[in-house]
Amino acid sequence: MKAQVFTMDFIISIILFMSMMIMISILWSTLTIDLESKKSFDDMMFQALSTSELLVKDGGNPTNWTTSVFYSLGLAESENVLEWRKISYFVELVLNDYSSVKDVLGLSDDFYFELYDLTNSTTIVSAPLISLESYDNVAAVNRIVLVNNSLARFSFAIVR
């Protein structure tokens, strides 16, 4: 009788233990995949955040950079106030020399940016000419800025 009770307990224990192990391994692999994709997305988000920070707070090098002479890129005339001349140059560079812009910004992934007028609810500029729907992962950062003394949203996205 004693041995039988022990066997039943043992069988139940084994079944429960195996169930738990299967549950934990499924959960573990699911969470590992989730965390890996989260880490990859965080990396994209970090690139988007640091690049947007550079573009909206810095004026670039030299400060009066042009499409032919630039060592670093920045669109600001002061903190969060963008200079229209630099925005035009930046769009021109992105459309004509995308890989150089990527190199100068230190990006390993593709990017997209849009400037949206919050007063008139219209897109002022966007580049490059891509569709965000064609990418699986889009990490976008929205910055509130001033363009021509008007409130605007500067969106910068890293896409994969």
Partner: peptide, 17 residues
């Protein structure tokens, strides 16, 4: 973090205008 950055940006711009 993204919302904090947006809030901080907004205050900078609202101050400057």
């Amino acid at each position: 973090v993204l919302r904090s950055v947006e809030a901080s940006d907004a205050l900078i711009v609202l101050h400057k205008t």
